[in-house]
Design a binder for these strands. Structure first.
Lengths: 237, 237
DNA sequence: AATTCCCAATTTGTTAGACAACTTTTTGCA
DNA sequence: TGCAAAAAGTTGTCTAACAAATTGGGAATT
């Protein structure tokens, strides 16, 4: 810190590339209904003049909307907005989740986790069970409770989802886990309660035992208890 | 043959734009682990030579991967693959779903629909209930059972999801409904059973009544019955 | 010898202009 | 009026160049 001017305390504006900025701008326009489904976007030429960037940048922005299934382009015709009812990607805002949103996302996750535990209890193979136990082990021996521990925790739930044999469960739980990752991290770092780790491990153990015993009802109940406890620990600090 | 050669019987290859094709190719490479998370993609220059296209096209392809949260680019450094654990979009293949995949997707949907019905029963407002009833009405008066009817059916489930007050439920159910839309359509068109409509309407009615009575258990049970019946009707024809 | 500093090579971000491929609109002719 | 050809408009692709940021190595200094 002797020389080299001090970096900004919070590096909030990281110089977002133009294409990304314009893409976000267009997403807002579409989602707020300013450009209704079925209608066409302004031409690339028009957009490039409007935003003061080259057509290349506009095309890269539109390219992203296409990837999200938000628009569809036809050569010679234009770029039209696809109705919300048949979009093919489910995406979360890149902005950090607010308190209310975290609660809502957890509410979406709960029935899935319960079903996941039930199905895992019914269908798991020996290898899949071992992976669940491994994640549990990794979590119990992790010293730093705030990073490696969270990863092992997420891995535990992911391993259960994989043991359902249904890849959609595995993928979607991984997706939700990633979205909640930051929230879990901050929640844990703010909590000084040293019992949390042992409590969490005990809850996990109940789940593992129920799955191992191939008892779907018990697995679902254990998972529900774990989630309710975790939600409390996360939303009230 | 005389002029304008006959178009291919099945227009399977519709002349996919190069950018889209390359994007899909890269997605496969990443998802199959050929380019592991944390490593960098080949440079844009290298990829453009490798695929025989201009750098512009490569950039548009990479732009799509960025939209999916699959990669991240840093000016001067390169484009690196993001670990699967923290992707921020959940997406289905654009290819039509196979039989097994439909079953798996329905299995993912079931616990969500049940939770959705339960929450709707607990929290719905008068207006939200009216929207559910409207969709039910629209379905009962729909003459063409194969298109307008399916839309009303999906609207019914979507209305229930909205009545939970949790926007994630609404969004995700809409997403799943859109993905299953085609499957439902073909399944219905192949079934000549005229009772299906009345059976479905009766099942829907049970759900509406349970929600109106603010009885979560009954709503969940009615939804479960409906889904099990619908699954049977869809997967066995 | 180790460290620091600076510069050159890489690599992504952006611009400009041009042409090709396709669609839509207009024009001109019968 | 009806219809085909031409023109204009729009997206897809290419090329060339420069800007901005990172990276690595070599030279200068300590």
């Amino acid at each position: 810190m002797t020389k080299g001017e001090a970096p900004p305390a919070l590096q909030l504006a990281v110089k977002t590339p133009a294409a990304e900025e314009i893409a976000q701008h267009l997403v807002v326009l579409i989602r707020d209904g300013m450009i209704p489904a079925g209608t066409k976007l302004p031409t690339e030429h028009h957009l490039s003049r409007q935003f003061g960037v080259s057509r290349t940048v506009v095309r890269e922005a539109i390219s992203r909307l296409k990837a999200d299934g938000l628009v569809e382009s036809r050569q010679g015709s234009g770029v039209s907005v696809i109705p919300a009812s048949l979009r093919k990607s489910f995406k979360l805002q890149e902005a950090v989740l607010g308190h209310q949103q975290v609660i809502e996302l957890l509410e979406l996750r709960q029935p899935l986790e319960m079903a996941s535990a039930r199905l895992a209890a019914e269908r798991h193979t020996a290898q899949e069970l071992q992976e669940i136990i491994d994640a549990q082990q990794r979590m119990s021996v992790s010293l730093d409770w705030s990073d490696e521990g969270v990863q092992a925790d997420l891995d535990f739930h992911h391993a259960i989802a994989k043991a359902t044999g249904n890849p959609f469960y595995a993928d979607f739980m991984a997706f939700l886990g990633g979205a909640l990752r930051m929230t879990i991290l901050t929640a844990r770092s703010e909590s000084r309660n040293p019992n949390i780790k042992s409590i969490t491990l005990q809850e996990h153990l109940s789940i593992v035992q129920a799955i191992e015993a191939r008892n779907p009802d018990a697995a679902g109940r254990a998972m529900l208890l774990h989630l309710q406890g975790a939600t409390l620990r996360m939303t009230t600090h």
